[in-house]
Design a protein around this nucleic acid. Structure first.
Lengths: 204, 204
DNA sequence: GCATTTTGTGAGGACATCCTCATATACTCC
DNA sequence: GGAGTATATGAGGATGTCCTCACAAAATGC
C-alpha cells in the first residue's frame, strides 16, 4: 500500500529530509496549540518557514500530516514500552506500575500534541486506533509474566483499565486550579497499585 | 449580563418555546453525532424542521447553542447531585460511592453530547468550565460529612480524583472491543471504594 | 377586518480553509 | 556550462460554513 500520488514525493536529498523534519516540528506545535480541527495547513507551513506548496509536496492532506506526527510519536512511545516489556519478568509488579506511571506522564508532557491527535475520533484515524491497540497489547504483555494462567482477554481488559487510569492522571496534570496536585497523583498511583494487587496473585 | 442583541429574541409565545425546544433537541443529536466543531448550524436547523433564519433568531452563535444545550444538561445533572448531597449525611460512604457511580454513568449514557461539549477546551467555554467546578464542589460537599476536619482544598482534591475516575469509567464503557466490561467496571468501582476508605476515617 | 407584534424563511455576502498548478529556483552530475 | 531532477513558490479555484437581511406568514388584540 505504499502507492503515492504523482504530486506527492518522498524526499530524495538532504534538503528535502530537513524540510520534512521542519514541517513535522511545526505541525507538532500547531496541533498542540490548536488541536487537529483548528490547526490550518497555512499555519503549519508558515511556522516551518515554508510555503503551502512545499507542504503539500510532501503531505497530500492534513490527515497525512497528523498521521506522520503520530507515527513519529508512536516510535518513541513503543521504544519505551518495549523496554518495560523486556524488563517485566525481572521486576516486581509494583515496581512496574510505579515505572509505567511517570513514563507515560513524561511522554505526554514531552509530546503535547499527542493527546489531541490520538484521542480524537475525527481526524487521523489511521494511526490513532492502531496506537491504542498496540498500547493495550504492550501493557497486556507487561502484565502477563505476573499473571500466569490468565487469558489474553482478561489481560487486555486489565490493560485497558491501566491505560485509562494513566489518561486520567494526565488529565489531572493539566487541570488548572487543582490543589495538592502531587499528592493527588500519588494517590492515583497508589489506587492503581491496589487494583493490580487485587487482580494478580502474590508476586515473586 | 442578560443583555441581548437586537436581532436575538426570547420566545414570547408558546410556538416560540416549542421551536426553541425542538432546536435544542436537534442540536443535542447533531452535537452528539458530529461533535462541536463538525456540527453545522444548517444541520441543526434542518433536523429541527426549521430554517437557518429561525435558528439564528434564538441563538446568535453556534457557541450559544452549545451553551444552551449544556445548561439544560447541567440542570438535570445538578438535580441528581443535590439529591445525593442531601442524602449524604445519612448514608455510608461506600453506599454513596456505589450510588454516584451508576448515576453518572447513566447520565452520560442518557446525554451523549455532554462529554464532547463539556470536555472540549475550544467551543462552549462559558458553561463547560463552570460545570466542572460545580461538580467538584458537589462531590466535595458529599464527601464532607464523612471527613470531619478535612479542609476544603483537600476535599476538592479528592473530589477531582473521584470525578476523573468516573470519567475513566465512562471512557471504558464506550471503548469498543473491551472484553469483560461489566467485571471491569465493577473492579473500577471497587478501586474507588478502596481509595475512599484509605482517605477517610472509619465511617459511622 | 385591521394594526401590531411575533415568528418564519432562504438566498446570498463575507470569510476561511483545503488543495492545485503552472512556473521558478536550487542542486547534482557529466 | 548545461541537461536533468528535485525542491520551492504563492496566486487562486473549489468548497463549505457562519451569519445577515429584507421580506413573508401567522398570531394576537381590538
Amino acid at each position: 500500500m505504499s502507492s503515492q500520488n504523482a504530486t506527492v514525493r518522498q524526499p530524495q536529498r538532504e534538503k528535502g529530509r530537513l524540510r520534512v523534519a521542519a514541517l513535522l516540528d511545526a505541525a507538532q506545535q500547531v496541533f498542540a496549540e490548536d488541536g487537529f480541527d483548528a490547526a490550518t495547513m497555512t499555519a503549519i507551513a508558515a511556522r516551518a518557514g515554508a510555503s503551502i506548496g512545499s507542504l503539500y509536496q510532501y503531505f497530500p492532506t492534513k490527515e497525512h500530516v497528523a498521521d506522520a506526527v503520530l507515527a513519529r510519536y508512536a516510535e518513541a512511545l513503543y521504544q519505551r514500552m518495549q523496554a518495560l516489556q523486556d524488563a517485566s519478568p525481572e521486576w516486581r509488579i509494583d515496581q512496574l506500575a510505579s515505572e509505567l506511571f511517570p513514563t507515560l506522564i513524561r511522554f505526554r508532557a514531552d509530546h503535547p500534541a499527542f493527546g489531541g491527535l490520538a484521542e480524537s475520533e475525527r481526524g487521523p484515524a489511521l494511526q490513532a486506533t492502531g496506537i491504542r491497540k498496540h498500547m493495550r497489547r504492550y501493557v497486556a504483555e507487561i502484565l502477563r509474566p505476573h499473571a500466569p494462567g490468565m487469558d489474553t482477554e482478561q489481560l487486555e481488559a486489565m490493560a485497558a483499565v491501566v491505560l485509562q487510569t494513566m489518561k486520567t492522571a494526565v488529565a489531572l496534570t493539566n487541570e488548572i486550579d487543582l490543589p495538592h496536585r502531587p499528592a493527588v497523583l500519588a494517590q492515583l498511583q497508589q489506587m492503581l497499585a491496589l487494583y493490580l494487587a487485587a487482580q494478580l496473585p502474590a508476586s515473586t
